[in-house]
């Protein structure tokens, strides 16, 4: 019943290999590393329509990721989408009059928030609100409007 050393060693190696594999999946394959640098500050933006935006969708500026969507709620008074953005601490010089728009990566790709820098001297800080927003392009609406205007034109 006493087990041999070799059993213990092989079991140890097996468990280690499994844990290494899990570690690789976390660090190398997935975006686990993103979680570690997510200390930052939060700002809020209201959108008329967020389309398919999700929590943890990327927030970019000139194509560079500067944060992630932290929370999405419905504003009870305006019935707009109330989106909380988590911006990384290293990007602390974003002007207060920056505009936020919801874009789609590719025709059918996932949606993300793009920021366009304004000209103010003051910078966004924790708890601030982004006033200038542009809602998501909803494909059905766009097509609908297009057909409608065509029909009217004729």
């Amino acid at each position: 019943m006493r087990q041999s050393k070799s059993t213990e060693i092989t079991v140890g190696m097996f468990v280690a290999a499994g844990l290494v594999a899990l570690f690789v999946l976390a660090m190398k394959v997935s975006n686990f590393t993103d979680f570690t640098d997510e200390t930052g500050y939060q700002v809020v933006a209201e959108f008329e329509n967020i389309g398919g935006l999700k929590v943890r969708s990327p927030v970019t500026m000139a194509g560079v990721r500067v944060g992630r969507v932290a929370a999405i709620d419905l504003s009870p008074t305006t019935y707009n989408a109330h989106v909380t953005l988590n911006l990384y601490g290293s990007f602390d010089t974003i002007p207060t009059d920056t505009a936020a728009s919801i874009y789609t990566a590719g025709l059918l790709g996932e949606q993300y928030i793009g920021l366009e820098a304004g000209a103010e001297e003051e910078f966004l800080k924790d708890g601030d609100v982004i006033e200038l927003t542009q809602p998501a392009l909803v494909l059905e609406q766009v097509i609908g409007q297009f057909l409608f205007s065509k029909a009217e034109g004729e």
Partner: peptide
């Protein structure tokens, strides 16, 4: 119970 998730992780990692 312990082995299965480890084996699955090894499978995925090696597969990738």
């Amino acid at each position: 119970f312990i082995s299965m998730p480890l084996l699955a992780a090894i499978f995925s990692a090696v597969g990738i």
